[in-house]
Computed example of a mutant assay.
Amino acid sequence: MGILQIQQVRNRLESVFFPLLDLHDISSHPESSLTNFKLTRALTAFVMMKRSQLSAEEAAQCITDGTGDNGLDGIALVPEENKIILVQSKWSETGKGSAELAEMIKFRDGVNDLLSLRWHKFNEKIRAREKEILDVLMQPDIKIDIVFAHMGTGALAGQVKDTMEEFVTDQNDSVSDALNFTYLAQTHIHRMLVEEQQAGEIDLTVSLSDWGSIEGPPPRPFMDTSEASTPLTG
């Protein structure tokens, strides 16, 4: 994918999520590295927003990236669906590469520590949410959405993919499919941006005042809107 698509994603992240990010823990970093931190956190929030019903503001509050995050950049909860979304993100300015083995192992181990309730292995951002996370984790029909998002276009190496997929298979016994793993490369991330725009372009309001059928042959249903009585065909 070309540099234009990368800039389109970046523009969306900067305009929507940058103003919402909590950066107090990295404020002392030089501007060169600060930008990458911000883009990674914004990408995490974007992914959580798109895979849930959270608003941009709510998704930004779910970012856990920082020292001691144990591989979990974001934890989003959807209590009404008994669902938890665990995200690791990597921004790539060039659009090259894919998740590396060490990164996937760290992510896998972080997920395992969370499921094992090893709270001492996580930073304050995660420990402060222990109760609300635990409430969802203890639901028998929980769904755990594990997502690695990478702005590179490179294919995910088999060994890297197997690292997480074998863990997921091991955790899901014969009567459970609680865990699901998804790898989002640049193409998938940009597609979410396109779909978001297309959805926003649909704005149709119809006032239905009556409905019935028209004598045939063949008989046809009709609906009466505030604009006209329109037969339904097809």
Rank of each mutant, 00 (worst) to 15 (best):
S226Q: 13
N36Q: 14
Q159A: 11
A59D: 03
D177M: 07
S174K: 12
I189C: 08
T205K: 12
A102R: 12
E165V: 10
Q197S: 11
V78I: 14
K131N: 12
R118N: 13
S213M: 13
L115F: 12
N172S: 03
R127S: 08
L77F: 03
A102G: 02
S229L: 12
A155I: 11
G66K: 04
A99K: 00
E103R: 09
P231R: 09
S92V: 06
H24E: 14
L117R: 15
W211F: 13
W211Y: 13
K96Q: 14
S32E: 14
S213H: 10
T205S: 09
A42G: 06
S28P: 00
S33H: 10
V9I: 15
E80P: 00
E100L: 09
W119I: 04
R129A: 05
F46I: 06
A199V: 07
T163G: 00
G71W: 08
V9Q: 11
K125Q: 08
L117V: 09
T35M: 10
D210A: 15
D73M: 08
S92A: 12
K143I: 05
V87M: 01
E103D: 15
A149K: 03
I142Q: 01
I214A: 02
M151R: 11
T182C: 06
D135K: 13
N172P: 01
A149E: 04
M164Q: 06
G212I: 09
K131C: 03
M192S: 08
T67K: 07
I75E: 01
Q53D: 14
A128Q: 13
S55L: 10
S213T: 14
L137H: 03
D65M: 05
I144E: 00
D162I: 03
T169F: 04
T67P: 00
E227R: 10
T187D: 14
V160F: 02
R191S: 12
G2M: 11
S226W: 02
S55R: 06
E166C: 02
T67L: 07
H29T: 08
L101F: 13
T169Y: 04
